[in-house]
């Protein structure tokens, strides 16, 4: 296992583990922490967490494959999540997703996570982001954008450094 965890991250992780009476509970928070740091959850990360929490790697692997927010492959620098659920669909998110995909040269029919050739953007058509009153909505990394027209989407993408 060659996983380079900086001291700061490790101490944050140690702190997170103390939040729970049982270590296993911390596994999702640890997965978030490592995904934020490395951009994805690698096999090494899974094994590292399992060891840290005294679990079997399968226990962690089960979570990674269950919760869609964890990804096992690296994604682009910016992950654009377009909401596809009913209110956003009524607000035109289908077209918005197609627009974003074609702008970035991606397959508009593919709803899964796909990354642009330059590796800068990843686009994913996701389930409800819980801001149905301002449909359609997208998330660009941790930033949330409401009432996104195609023009607004262009601006959001263009503004990404």
């Amino acid at each position: 296992m060659s996983l380079n965890i900086p001291q700061k991250l490790e101490s944050e992780i140690e702190e997170l583990i103390t939040h729970y009476p049982e270590k296993r509970s911390a596994s999702m928070m640890l997965l978030h922490a490592l995904q934020e740091h490395f951009g994805y959850v690698s096999k090494e990360s899974i094994e590292w967490i399992a060891k840290k929490l005294e679990l079997k790697p399968i226990n962690v692997h089960e979570l990674v494959t269950f919760y869609p927010m964890f990804r096992q492959e690296p994604a682009g620098k910016y992950v654009v999540k377009v909401c596809r659920t009913l209110s956003c669909a009524l607000g035109g998110s289908g077209k918005l997703h197609k627009h974003v995909c074609s702008k970035l040269g991606l397959d508009a029919e593919n709803h899964g996570l796909q990354t642009s050739e330059d590796g800068k953007f990843s686009v994913e058509f996701v389930e409800c982001l819980a801001s149905c009153g301002t449909a359609p909505v997208i998330m660009c990394n941790n930033e949330f954008h409401e009432g996104v027209s195609q023009e607004k989407a262009d601006t959001i993408i263009n503004q990404c450094p």
């Binding site: 939040h19 049982e22 296993r24 509970s25 999702m28 978030h32 929490l53 226990n59 979570l63 409800c128």
Partner: peptide, 23 residues
């Protein structure tokens, strides 16, 4: 405690399992 994109965690026993670090 942060979830990771599972609607079923809104169900209280599902949420408890999730908080215990399980599916």
């Amino acid at each position: 405690h942060r979830g990771a994109g599972a609607y079923i965690c809104g169900e209280e026993t599902g949420l408890i399992e999730s908080l215990e670090g399980k599916r």
